[in-house]
Amino acid sequence: MSVRAAPTARFPRLALFDLDGTLLDSAPDMAATVNRMRATRGRGPMPLEELRPHVSRGARAMSAAAFPELGGEVPPETIREFLDAYELELGRSGAPFDGVEELLRAIEDDGARWGIVTNKPEYLARQLLPMLGWQERCAILIGGDTLAQRKPHPLPLTHAAAVLDVEVEDCVYVGDDERDIAAARAAGMRSVVALWGYRLPHEVPTEWGGDLMAETPIDLHRADRWPR
């Protein structure tokens, strides 16, 4: 009697990723951005490690951290100033996290696809792709202003799956922020918590409800380690 070989594990047909804090260590670019703003006000630089936990929260949170006298009330003109300064620093110091490039190659070699769903404005995220050599490889890019809703709403994830004609059951979303995992759960999509990313000291990722906790991108290099 012949013995049937066990099926080889494969990557999800569509792996979707957050950008800042998941694929890309953009904290150095963000620190350069707020320090441009601080310099115009005659202030010294903010240490990178002080800003790093706020990066995944976006321009408003980073501006609030850089200028605590605002009391968390960041006016629209300060957000605009941040985005304009960030565009000048875009891709100058940041880089993919160790193991990310090998992870994306492994997904591609398996015949699967990957894409990016971020809350970063689309025009900024799109400028990064050629800098990283990803413009021909990324199957879809959804920014925070691409659609009527942004994460933690599930629409960006369900839209990405629909555009690429992939069932949500065949997708996995990887992100480092609680909003990422909430969006995946609301979309009916499995999720991976990227523990290597950015988060504040009081945050407890084990309480977010993700399907898998990954310490580094290397943990995801093997298809059999992804949630099923």
Rank of each mutant, 00 (worst) to 15 (best):
Q149A: 08
R60M: 12
E122P: 13
A125M: 14
E50T: 14
M37S: 00
R57Q: 13
R60G: 01
L104G: 13
M62S: 03
I142Q: 07
P130I: 11
T40D: 07
T33M: 06
P96F: 13
E81M: 08
E49R: 06
S63E: 04
G44V: 14
G99I: 14
G143K: 10
E122A: 12
Q127S: 06
R52D: 00
G143L: 11
G111N: 12
T33E: 08
E101V: 15
P96W: 08
C138V: 15
S93E: 06
P130H: 02
V74K: 01
H54D: 09
S93I: 06
P154E: 09
P152A: 02
R41V: 02
M30S: 05
I140R: 06
A66W: 05
T33G: 00
A31S: 09
H159V: 14
P154C: 01
L90F: 10
A139S: 14
D110K: 05
Y86V: 10
E108R: 11
P68G: 01
S56D: 11
R92N: 02
E136L: 06
P28N: 00
M62I: 11
P156D: 11
V166N: 00
H159N: 05
P76S: 02
P154V: 05
P154A: 05
M37I: 13
A148F: 06
R38N: 01
I116T: 13
T40Q: 02
G72K: 03
M37H: 01
T118M: 12
P28Y: 01
H159F: 13
L141M: 14
A31D: 06
E81H: 04
P47C: 07
V34A: 00
L157K: 05
Y123I: 10
R36W: 09
R57C: 04
C138P: 10
D165I: 08
D29E: 07
D29P: 04
E101P: 12
L103C: 14
R38W: 04
I107F: 01
